[in-house]
Design a protein around this nucleic acid. Structure first.
Ligand SMILES: [Zn+2]
Ligand SMILES: [Zn+2]
Ligand SMILES: [Zn+2]
Ligand SMILES: [Zn+2]
Lengths: 156, 156
DNA sequence: GGTCACATGTTATAAAGTAACACCCATGTC
DNA sequence: GACATGGGTGTTACTTTATAACATGTGACC
């Protein structure tokens, strides 16, 4: 997700979908959780829990405890609204919540963007490789570091 | 890598290969680094830096600083002798150092074993998926959680 | 034997994540 | 309306993981 797009729209969209999904499931997207989701979506770059915490504290005008954020993130991850990028200890909004998918990411070393993909070839290859070894897949993690298209075209 | 195998052999083997590789490259596998590598190889389960630190301290009879271990690990990872499992904040010996590969792991939720694989289908699928999006791959990370064969056969 | 690069030691600190327990507040029940 | 119930949040303290800054050692090379 390069520089120029209407990101306000991304955020609004994400919140709308989250509202709908949670309503449908009877999950409680409380004000706090909604605000954290919004902060996760403040960019397409994965954000650390403590960065979110800082923003939240500022919004509230008073210090918030880490647990507050971690609990909200836990909920959002469970609901599939947010993914955790293991290799960055950071969180990013899910591009397509509701759809069943495991989370595959192309993480740009230069701009920090994390593009979520759900490539069936990758998923299938992992399942096949695991099956060959008698391994039962529960949760694949794919995080590919490299250079995104726009950073290749406009290097620093 | 299930329960029953001659793990002493795994360790000796890993050290021998490490010696050879480092000699070949002119990299300095010092006594300390060699001991850390040995501790990483103490099982096929990824081990945390602080677990290794504890073992090391005990061996030496005196407290060692975290940095000592982290620096040794950094070297070992650079040399491809050890991989870091991002989703566990832990380190595991590389099954095939020297070979060019990125590190794909099947991590068992039950016994904790991390089997390293280097499945060409997975690698190729990732490259293809990335190429479709103009993304240039530098370092793929694949960490699959699930149940290994032996844990499926002998559940708790 | 000087010096240069790299390895290690030491101390302090940062960043990321969790435990335990109290309180609040919406919902449903009597 | 009183009251139990359960999930969500607040508060405090703490653990685990990782790094910064600076001093000291050590071996290769000229
Ligand atoms: Zn956007
Ligand atoms: Zn980029
Ligand atoms: Zn073994
Ligand atoms: Zn297992």
């Amino acid at each position: 997700m390069s520089a120029l797009h209407d990101h306000t729209h991304c955020i609004a969209d994400a919140l709308t979908r989250a509202d709908a999904l949670c309503a449908e499931r009877g999950a409680r997207l409380t004000a706090l959780r909604r605000r954290v989701l919004e902060l996760v979506w403040s960019s397409h770059r994965p954000r650390g829990a403590y960065a979110i915490l800082e923003d939240l504290s500022q919004q509230e005008g008073k210090a918030t405890a880490p647990l507050t954020v971690y609990r909200a993130l836990e909920f959002l991850v469970e609901q599939g609204l947010v993914h955790r990028i293991e290799s960055l200890n950071a969180y990013v909004g899910c591009a397509d919540p509701g759809a069943v998918h495991s989370g595959q990411f192309l993480v740009c070393e230069s701009c920090g963007d994390a593009a979520e993909i759900d490539d069936p070839r990758v998923g299938a290859a992992i399942i096949a490789a695991a099956a060959d070894r008698g391994f039962r897949v529960q949760r694949p993690t794919v995080e590919v570091r490299g250079l995104c298209k726009s950073c290749q075209e406009n290097p620093r």
